[in-house]
Structures are given as C-alpha cells and as structure tokens.
Design a binder for these strands. Sequence first.
DNA 1: GGCGAGCCACAACCACCGGTTGTGGGTACG
DNA 2: CGTACCCACAACCGGTGGTTGTGGCTCGCC
Lengths: 314, 314
Amino acid sequence: MRSFVRAAELGQLQQAADEFGVTQQAVSKRIAALERELDVRLFTRTARGVELTLDGQAFLPHARDVVAGVDRAVAATRPGSRALRIDVLGLRSAQAVVLHDYWRSHPETNLDVVTLRVDDPREAAAAVQAGDIDASFRSVTDAATLPRDVRMIHAFDSPLELLVGPRHPLAAARSLTPAKLRGHRIWVPGIAPRSEWADFYDQLATDFDLRIDAAGPHFGDEVLLDILADSADVATLVGSRDRYLWPANHDLRRIPIVRPTLAYPLSLILPRANPHPGLRAVIDHVARLTPLPATTWRPSWAPASMCSSASKSA
Amino acid sequence: MRSFVRAAELGQLQQAADEFGVTQQAVSKRIAALERELDVRLFTRTARGVELTLDGQAFLPHARDVVAGVDRAVAATRPGSRALRIDVLGLRSAQAVVLHDYWRSHPETNLDVVTLRVDDPREAAAAVQAGDIDASFRSVTDAATLPRDVRMIHAFDSPLELLVGPRHPLAAARSLTPAKLRGHRIWVPGIAPRSEWADFYDQLATDFDLRIDAAGPHFGDEVLLDILADSADVATLVGSRDRYLWPANHDLRRIPIVRPTLAYPLSLILPRANPHPGLRAVIDHVARLTPLPATTWRPSWAPASMCSSASKSA
DNA sequence: GGCGAGCCACAACCACCGGTTGTGGGTACG
DNA sequence: CGTACCCACAACCGGTGGTTGTGGCTCGCC
C-alpha cells in the first residue's frame, strides 16, 4: 500500500522504487499483487509512468488512511514519540467516560486509554514514575505514600447512584437520600480489602449507618447485572457517569442519591517533572465538569474541592 | 494485525487461530513478529490465554483502525459493495468542493470522489452506464445525446468570478457587472473545442460582447496563476466555489460578477435504473445550496432552475 | 523515419518469510 | 497429583517477495 500511495503521488513506479530503496521491478510486483488481490486495475501504464484508474482513485484515499493508521499504531508503542497514555480503572468507569468525552471534543489529540488492572494506587504511581503511563486516574487515600517523583492533583468527584432491579422496593424512587438506604442490602463485589474502594465504602457505611457488603469475588459486570435484575433485595452503587447496562439493559434503574450527594473523589497522578504536554488540556477539561452541590459528602481523605483553580497548578 | 486484534478480543491465541483457520503456532508467530517489529511486548502470556500489556492496550485501537481501514479500502474497489463513487471535473472544481462540504456534514457516508479526466459529458454518461461510476457532475448541452439508460437532473449553478492579478486595471473593484468586462482580455486556457465549456464561453462572449480567449493548452494551474499574477491585462474566469489559489496565493483577487450573475449550470448524470442509494442524500444536499438571484444569466441550454424540488424526482 | 532514452512487464533465480507438524513447559482444576 | 489446556520453540517446507536480466512500448529528437 505504501508503494501504491507513493507511486500514485509520483506518477512513476521508478521514482517510488528509488525512494523505497528497491528496484522498479519490486514495486511493479507489489502493485501487481495488490491489483491481483483486489481484482481490479489500479494504474493504467503509459510510456512516461503510471496513471490512476477510477478504481485506483477510489482506492487511494483509503490506502493513505491505512498507511497513516499504521504509522499512528507504531507510534503508539514507541517510547519516544508515543501518544498521551492515561490509565483508568476499567474501560467503563467514570474516568474512562470523562476521557472519552474529552477525546470527542478534541479528536485531534492522540490519546490512548489503558487499564493497569491493579487496585493499588501506589502501583499506578510506580507505573507513572517508570514512564509506562503518562498519568493515572485514582483515588488516593494518603498522598504521603506516593513516591517523590510523582504528584497528584484533584481531578473531579464522581457522584454515586443506586442501581436496582425492577422488583426492588426502592425501584420506583426518582431520587434517594442516604438515610433511605438504611437497612437495605448493598452489594459491591470485587472490592479488594484495604483498597481505596474498601476505605471509601467503610467510611460511607459508618457515616450513614449503611449495610454495604463488599465481600465476594467479582465475576464480571454481566453476572452482577443478572443478579440485580432478578433480585428483590440486592442493590449496588455505581458512579453516575459509569457506563453500565451494556449487554441487554436488563430493565435496571439508576437512582440518583441526593441530600447529600455521595461523591467518590478522583485524582490524577502524574510525574512531577516533565509531564506529557497533552495532560494540561485534559486537566482543564475535567476541571470544567459541572461541580457537585456544596453539601456533597466526601470521604475524610478527599482533597478539598478546588473547582477550576486546579488547572492553574498544572 | 488482524490476528492481534482478534486474539486480544478473545483473550486466546488458540481460538483466534481456529477462527482464521490456521494453527495456534502460526498465530503465535504472527504476534511474535509484530512484537519484534514494534520492539515491545503486546501480550503477557498466562496459563489460560493471553492478556494485553499496556503497550498492547495502546496499540489495540490503532490496530482496529488499520484493519477497518483495510476493509474499507478493499470495499472501495469491489464492484458489488463499493462506496458511492462520483466523478467531478478536477479535484478543485466547484463540484468537488460541494461534495467535500457534503462529506464533512455526513462523515459517515463512504464517498469516493474520482475524476474521469475526460471532457465529453457523453463519455461520462457512458461510464455511468457501464457502472464504473455512480454519478457524474457535468454540464450537458444537449440532453438528447445521452444514452437511454442514464438520466440527468439539474444539480446547482456555479457563479463565476473574475480572477486578476494586482496590476490589472479591475483589480480594485469590489464587484463587476459583465458590461465592465467589455474590452478586457479574458483568457481561459485548456478549453477543448466543441466541449461544454467552449459552448458556454461562446454564448457568454456573444451575449455580452466579451473577448474570451479560449485558445492554447493548459499547462497547469500554477502556470496560469503565475501569468495572471504578473500580467496587467490578462484576467480569467473561475467558479466562486473553485478551490484555486493553492500554491502561494500570488496576491490574486477574485471579483464577483453581478447584475447579472453569470452561472455555469451543473447537472448530475446518474443511471435511470437502480441509482446508488447514497445519491439521494447528495442530491438533497446540493439542492439546498443557496440559490442564485432570479436575474442570473445562464446559457440557453441550461435547464430551468428547479430549486429544491429537484430532489423529489430522485 | 529511425534511434535512443525512459518507462514498465515478464522470466529466472534465490533467500527468507510464514505456514505446517511435533514437542515441551507452565498453570489451573478436579 | 494427574489431566487438560494453552503458549513457545524446533525442524521442515512451499511460496512470497526480493534480485538481475531482458524485452516491448512510447515518446521526443536528430
């Protein structure tokens, strides 16, 4: 395809061959192979070179697209020149959704979203330190435990919603206060002990006298959603921006929690020295997300909400 | 790359190999070759399959992009399932610009713009008839000469502007009436005798008593622009939507012509039976272009301006 | 008009890529 | 603790994709 594109631009196989450092015959065979594979003629051969046929003209932009895509793909892994790479906790998490929003409003940025698949923010910090990733969205319970080379800035707060099946007694509510959850069983599987989420739910249960069951392994979202859809007494908590309900909707309901809103604080871990230049725009973007009400509940270790002033410190 | 994408989705080389109808070892070698070429590890191998590394995660969407691009590329040439293919007279012509506008407002359409490189509308009609292209923007002086299998509908009128260099006596005008052009030399090179353009300029010269010099070969836009920029007495006519002034601007001026506006009529030639379904939207789009004033001059063979009702007949 | 200069295509040749089969190592599970 | 399953490595082999050599074709120029 590279040969085809270049030959089409130059109008000659010979020159293209020279540029690629191969013989004219090699390029001729490449084109011939391409034509054989597509079963169309791409060039009309003339005495002074080649000229695109209709099929060739139609093919050319797509071929350009492909070679550019290949270049982007290899650039995405080359340590020196690689795109902005940000770690999130799960591709359907609120962080991922916010990043996706950012990318949609800035489609020109070369952004790769990855998941480290580790719970511990310190491991994420180590990956940032090592340069494996440029930044990581995490909730850091104790900033002092981070390595010296990385720092952390508050990104945004993710408000929680209750997710229940149609037979649950709270299924019809339009919104709920935390007090209304008292006595109901809230099941949040897959929470590693002593992780950032465990701490969060511990405090939440204590402060509002809730019954949050964080035990048991997580067998995947689909299993969880299946159970919720069938159950009349199990509910779970999800971030309002989390992208759930993906497989077959299941007729589940998301019910906002208010007075106070419950917020899970998310910070961005980034290197103290030479952060990726593209990070600035991302930070600005998350800082402009609609702020939560002043009465919002946050865990004790949450950083003070900085609103849009956070971007200044980047 | 296909193997990589599929293996990443399935989490196993084995299954991917089964799908591709090759052995597991073959896929393993493909992945290994990719990793060697990129000089990164894409998968971590586990006992129950493979899992993406960070680099692999970053690479995956780009790889998906590439394979999708390849699929689009081959689809663009396959006769059965190919994209909407429309012929225009030059990639910088008003027709091409209008199509580009259309594509920008409907990025999802798979549109290929090609140039047949023939002047004669009947040749374009033959290409439409043969199925080489789905439609062609042309100015047809005599609809009766078209083959029975194709038909023609009015697309839009392209208003003309005068293009002059800074030293030309008319260079300072904000707009001009055709009468003001009288006596000035207008040079329109590259017009084949008895072509649609030749007829157009003949009538124009006659109706307004102008001096239009259509002789001489066309050595390319750059040469024409060079000559215009230097000359104090040569001007030319261009469509207001034509994408000229491309190389280095040359300090040329485009001066609209009004009272009356001079319009070059463009029709769309399309097959009478089974036109490409995507054509409807294109026709609707060009029909919605801002109409020209009622006093607009058109050549005698121009179809009556149908405004937006043209789309009905598609 | 004949001739040389550029092109591209075809033929023959050969290295190596990309598939095959066979086998071994590692991990999870009953 | 054996079994099942998956991936990697080795040896092998045909075909792809490069090379050199050559021929045909079309310009443009004496």
